[in-house]
Design a protein around this nucleic acid. Structure first.
Lengths: 146, 146
DNA sequence: TCAATATAATTGCTATAGCATTTATATGTG
DNA sequence: CACATATAAATGCTATAGCAATTATATTGA
């Protein structure tokens, strides 16, 4: 099988390109797409522990630590101590963070709309569903190595 | 829209997870999935310039330089000077590289087969086709910023 | 021909992914 | 209670992504 036909290659290629396009649009706001993914999640669900945030965003806890560092440096999010467990922190979005997120939402939507222009809404739904099934299966297989 | 529903999030998540699973299986061979992607491409098409290789693998030329450095260090590939243009190099896979690739192919195929176990072959084809269409459109949009 | 421009590859930089280890704090068991 | 074990977060490490700048060499145009 040629590499171009490998589902692994195709998925990663699609993801990288999409991130690249989004990154160009986000550059003016000095925010990376990964910082954006954490910021959005915080806007949806404020005050979760870093561990919990990692699971929800689907990132390693190490990466969450570092992305939160960046968001905190930019005053878009902040850590607050957990009085019940001094090992853990709760992450919160700041007013500036929520404000920025509000300005980025329409840009993300515009980008996503433009890249899916050549496929129908129904196809987009199918695409998402198939990817989610594949990811679930992959997660299941990954668990065998934990 | 919740982040979980964002096509961008879903694609990137799928790609990362798949790479992670493949990485676990490749670890015993001391090869990363990205090194693998370059090595496979070289096996398909030996003796291309780095610039050309970058386009084919869908990576930045900078990354090709560095991944080739790794492959060369591991004696899996080598650069040869281009007599017609002393700025450029041709990249070649070594015997050891071709040998390793041959041993990894069945592993990659097994992993891809296992992650697509929950979907039909027809669905896998649809999935790939939709992703390719999305990537093509994204590439087209990216060109506007070049 | 020679000077301006373009190009192939490299290098330096920041951010991210993921692993192993460390640190601080909790928890659970004798 | 004391000690072993578990857990949350941080840190150190290597590899990768991508941008900007550099270096060496080609090409182009006056």
């Amino acid at each position: 099988m040629r590499q171009d036909d490998s589902i692994g290659f195709i998925i990663n290629q699609a993801g990288r390109r999409l991130s690249q396009l989004l990154a160009i649009r986000f550059a003016a706001f000095d925010l990376t797409t990964e910082q954006w993914s954490v910021l959005s999640r915080l806007c949806e669900q404020d005050g979760t522990s870093q561990k919990d945030l990692a699971v929800r965003v689907g990132k390693d806890q190490t990466n969450i630590t570092r992305i939160l560092d960046q968001l905190e440096r930019k005053k878009l999010a902040e850590r607050r101590t957990n009085p019940d467990d001094r090992r853990s922190f709760y992450a919160f979005v700041t007013d500036a963070g929520r404000d920025l997120q509000g300005r980025l939402v329409p840009i993300e939507q515009e980008v996503l709309a433009s890249v899916t222009e050549e496929i129908t809404e129904q196809q987009a739904t199918i695409l998402k569903e198939l990817l989610i099934r594949l990811t679930n299966k992959t997660n299941e297989l990954l668990q065998h190595y934990e």
